[in-house]
Nucleic acid binder design. Structure first.
Lengths: 338, 338
DNA sequence: TCTACCCTGGAAAGCGCATTCCGGCATTAT
DNA sequence: ATAATGCCGGAATGCGCTTTCCAGGGTAGA
């Protein structure tokens, strides 16, 4: 069906080995005159290599897998974009799996990537500790077979990757909010078993405590827009928001998407941010700065994180190196106090 | 290194052919007792097939390529999510290429996917007519080699896919805005050579004309958040917004991301939507409904579009079938008139 | 009971390419 | 001038799997 290397070789009047050496990088560089003939023939016939066959012969596929929870979530799509950019020009292609936050699907995705003999797997997003066992096992198998594993956000197994200093960054945010004069805090902590969520919550609280402040409540719920919306609706219904006594409440959501959901619920109830309740998120997803009011958050260089991780997977030496990324508190209108 | 089919066969005391027939679907089903032995051995050894080798032997890779302009753009990431879902469970894997809106990169991505012998390629986003030649040529080569091409948004070549009724949907939106009483219109039309942008602009204008209304201006600029921001800044500086005479202006942006940029510029200038200027977008990206004010737009079922397209690529018969998707005008606060 | 046929498992031939090995030639060193 | 050293192109092997093709045993029909 398609043009094969053998066809090119025949057309150029050389052996297949020579054609291979000319067209696809080899340590041996054939004679320029011969090379030119081969290239001309390849052009003429419209030859393009069969990556599957190359992968089989080289036992390396030129593929890298990226596993995310939800590609439509701006947090992950920003990372994906960075990863794509990091790989650009290296000749390595990206395979994508979006797991819809199911642990089962995550393990399945790793299996699939193993089948395709991806050179590396990038895993973005935090996992609950409960799911680690199965995932860890399959990743170890992968590593035993020579695969590189790069985690984004969470350390796991004996892999490398980018660790986000959730703890310290959340603490820094808490510090800034205290400086602004906030004293009454509520936290929307996401799902209980998510490590990332837990770390952000813990870091935030520990900083408050260090300043002698106790959070008024910690609510758990889905780590998503709808989770934030729901929790906020509940909170408003409970009458905890807008109380005139003891100063305004400050809500810390452990992710921006939760904060957006919460904001929607606040608006819907006819209340205002920051007048009735102050609001802070975490991640600094791109759409956040265009909200009204603009929302305070912790900036994570998401795209850069994706890029760095991808680049790490390209260099063999970095297989189990960790890079720590710190978040930067960004104070915006949503936590203003007049 | 890894466990091979031959190892499993030996462990089970059968031939490799039999092992293959048992483990990977074949038309011939070996004896149940034998099959069980093979499966047990495979489990025992932790065998998983080498997809590259399978692809080579079957001459079909079980891969589908998705090419988008920018995976971090919610428009495309929603489509990607749908595509992923559409493929889920079919055993077909998704390969992703994000081209950063460069025509060159798009052609390159098709080449890469050809190399990987993807069974199908989905192309999302509109292309300028100028780039069609190169792209069309490479896609034709792909089709000649048995590849399926599914376009999302724009027809091209003799492929199938999902066509979006930009023209009619924009006209419908214009009709609704006229009904609300708007008479002074400005259009941010995106890049001149983008077919999608041009169609939306044309549809909108033709409906206005039919009602005897002439748009006051059509401005071209980048089809992105920053493009909208820039155009709006210019517009405000020119003094065209907020004039008390002749009623409030209504701005139609040919994409939601442009509308978001425009909104940011309006806010920055201390003006208000819809009081000083009304605003409408196109696409209905997920974040739009959570804006304040909520933004009028044309709803496109983005995720469903991605899903449909992916499903089409799975069924051979649908290779050159077209599905037309209509957008639905959604009137929100940003175009309210009191 | 014997022949014709079907079913099942195994041997072997690729799928398209990279790469090791080998032979022939032109250099350089002796 | 001869032997030793590279260098370059070609033949051949193998990557891991699917899929014909083949042989043998079982079944059914005569």
């Amino acid at each position: 069906m398609a043009v094969r290397l053998a066809d090119v070789a025949k057309a150029a009047g050389v052996s297949q080995s020579t054609a291979s050496r000319v067209l696809n990088g080899s340590s041996r560089r054939p004679n320029p005159a011969v090379a030119e003939r081969v290239r001309a023939a390849a052009d003429e016939l419209g030859y393009f290599p069969n990556a599957q066959a190359q992968a089989l012969a080289r036992s390396s596929a030129g593929l890298t897998g990226l596993i995310v929870h939800d590609i439509a979530d701006p947090y992950f799509s920003s990372i994906a974009r960075g990863a794509q950019r990091g790989l650009a020009g290296s000749g390595v292609q990206l395979m994508l799996a979006s797991t819809e936050r199911e642990a089962e699907a995550e393990v399945e995705a790793v299996r699939t990537f193993m089948s395709y003999r991806t050179d590396a797997i990038m895993l973005a997003g935090s996992r609950g500790l409960a799911d680690d066992a199965a995932l860890q096992k399959v990743l170890e198998t992968y590593q035993d077979n020579g695969g590189k594993v790069a985690m984004i956000g969470q350390p796991l197994s004996n892999a490398g990757g980018v660790r986000i200093d959730n703890d310290g960054s959340a603490a820094a945010l808490a510090g800034e909010l205290l400086k602004l004069g906030h004293r009454r805090f509520v936290i929307f902590a996401g799902e209980e078993q998510l490590t990332t969520a837990a770390q952000r919550t813990a870091g935030f609280i520990s900083k408050l405590r260090a300043a002698g402040v106790q959070p008024e409540a910690v609510h758990h719920g889905a780590f998503s827009r709808d989770g934030g919306y729901f929790l906020m609706s509940e909170l408003i219904r409970s009458g905890a928001v807008g109380g005139p006594d003891a100063g305004p409440l400050c809500l810390f959501c452990v992710s921006d998407v939760m904060a957006l959901g919460a904001l929607a619920a606040v608006r819907e109830a006819g209340m205002r941010v920051p007048e009735d309740i102050a609001l802070a998120g975490f991640d600094d997803i791109p759409t956040l700065a265009d909200q009204s009011p603009t929302i305070t958050t912790v900036r994570l260089p998401l795209e850069e994180i994706g890029r760095m991780t991808a680049v790490m997977t390209l260099h063999n030496g970095d297989a189990d190196r960790w890079t720590v990324v710190e978040g930067t508190p960004v104070l915006r209108e949503s936590t203003r106090r007049d």
